[in-house]
Structures are given as C-alpha cells and as structure tokens.
Simulated scan of single mutants.
Amino acid sequence: MTSVSIEADIKITWPDGHKSYSPGSPEELAIIGVDLLVKDLGTQAARSFIDQLFEKHSRAGHSQ
C-alpha cells in the first residue's frame, strides 16, 4: 500500500455559515467528501453515488 499525504485547505460555504477543513490523508479527505455529499444530497442519494463509484472501480479491476 502506498502512503499518500495531502496538503489542502478546503473552505465550504453554506447558507448558514462557513466551515474549513485541512485533510492530511486520503481517509480524512474521504470522510469530508462523504459528509458533504450526505449534507447536500441526503443519505440515500449519497449512498447511491458512492455505490456507483465502487461499481465502476470493481469493473475496472481496481478492487483490492
């Protein structure tokens, strides 16, 4: 497994305020992404979107 580090400053603007994130790993970035998807799309739509991504990668032979 390859070790990846991320340097990013993510700023989110919602109608009721702002939020900042500084993920340092792919796992932290994924958590932020999933959290934003759920807040924006709702749980079921976010789950469907993520399932489509997993299916795409499974078909491409990237499952590990």
Rank of each mutant, 00 (worst) to 15 (best):
I50P: 01
D51Y: 07
L53D: 08
P15V: 02
V4S: 07
D35Y: 04
S5Q: 13
A30K: 08
L41P: 00
A60G: 01
D51H: 08
V4L: 10
S20Q: 14
V38Q: 02
L41F: 15
S3Q: 12
I50C: 06
H18R: 09
K39N: 11
L53M: 13
A8L: 13
L29D: 08
S5I: 15
A8D: 09
A8H: 07
A60Q: 09
G24S: 15
T2L: 09
S48K: 05
A30Q: 14
I6Y: 03
S20M: 11
S58T: 09
A46D: 03
E7A: 13
I12G: 00
P26C: 10
T2W: 09
I6A: 07
E55W: 06
W14C: 06
S22I: 09
R59Y: 11
D16H: 06
V38L: 01
D51S: 09
I6M: 08
H18F: 05
I50T: 03
V4M: 08
L29M: 14
A45K: 15
I10K: 01
T43M: 10
D51W: 03
I32E: 04
H57N: 14
L41G: 04
V34Y: 05
G42M: 09
S58R: 14
S63R: 14
P15E: 11
G33D: 12
D9G: 10
P26L: 11
S22R: 14
Q44A: 08
K56G: 02
Q52T: 11
Q52W: 04
I32P: 01
I10G: 03
K39C: 06
S20F: 04
V34Q: 02
T2Y: 08
S3I: 09
E55P: 01
V4P: 01
H57K: 09
G42F: 05
V34K: 01
E27T: 15
L29T: 04
D35N: 15
A46S: 08
K56I: 07
S20N: 13
A8E: 14
L36D: 02
L36T: 00
I6D: 02
I10A: 07
L53H: 12
G61V: 06
P23C: 02
T43P: 00
K56E: 10
F54C: 12
I10S: 00
L36H: 01
D35H: 07
I10Y: 05
K56C: 09
L53W: 12
Q44H: 05
F49H: 06
A46M: 03
V38I: 15
S5T: 15
I10C: 04
T13N: 07
G24Y: 05
I32G: 00
K11L: 12
E7F: 10
T2E: 11
I10D: 10
R59S: 14
D51C: 06
Y21G: 02
I10F: 02
E55V: 05
I32V: 15
E7T: 10
D51I: 10
I6C: 03
S22V: 12
R47Q: 15
D51F: 05
I32A: 00
P23N: 04
S48T: 15
D40S: 15
G61K: 03
P26T: 10
D35E: 15
S58P: 01
K39L: 12
F54I: 10
H62V: 04
